[in-house]
Amino acid sequence: MDNFSKEEQLQQLSEIRSLMERSSRFISLSGLSGVSAGFTALIGSAIAYWRIEIHTSAAGGYSRYSQYTNSLLLELIFIAIGILVLALSFGAFFTLRESKKQGQSIWDKSSQQLLGSLLIPLVTGGLFCLLLLEHGILGMIAPATLIFYGLALVNASKYTLNDIRSLGFCQIILGLLNAKFMVVGNGILFWTIGFGIMHIVYGIYMHYKYK
């Protein structure tokens, strides 16, 4: 070992660390995917808010969930799906770009584990929200999406950048607060904070941290 120079030893250590990270975690998440998901959510919330206003004011002011007609609900569901698809496509685009930069394969054991640990709480949450919709418990849908999304992030943080964990906890707390202070029209506000603003703040933070 004496014949190794200090630079070589330092380089060995950094290579060891990089191999440990690259082989066990999917680290090619880009902060920009967070920012783009956040903006998509903001635009989506604005459209949803506007549609709700139009529908409920036509029905005579006061918004109550009982006034939400099936056509409005259908519109809201389509808006939600649209946001999801857009946010995922932006996310996939930036992640793909980042993984090329990092030299990490997009489809290896770590990314599969990441996806699996994300999907279990997310799919459960999605099905649960459909059941809430079926039973007409509309006020609980926004809190449930936030809580299950938060749980998915905490669960997935084992297989990716650790920072995702605290974002998950923030979403869970926000969801619980929303469930506690459930007033008609409140959901969209919490939803905008959680999926919109928090993603943007977090994305910017991550982007500069890992640049």
Partner: peptide, 22 residues
């Protein structure tokens, strides 16, 4: 060094995965 680093943080690693990483 590389082989051991990878095996320290993963349970079972395939030959192909090692080859790709190293």
């Amino acid at each position: 060094l590389g082989i051991m680093s990878i095996l320290m943080v993963n349970e079972w690693v395939e030959f192909k995965a090692l080859k790709g990483l190293l």
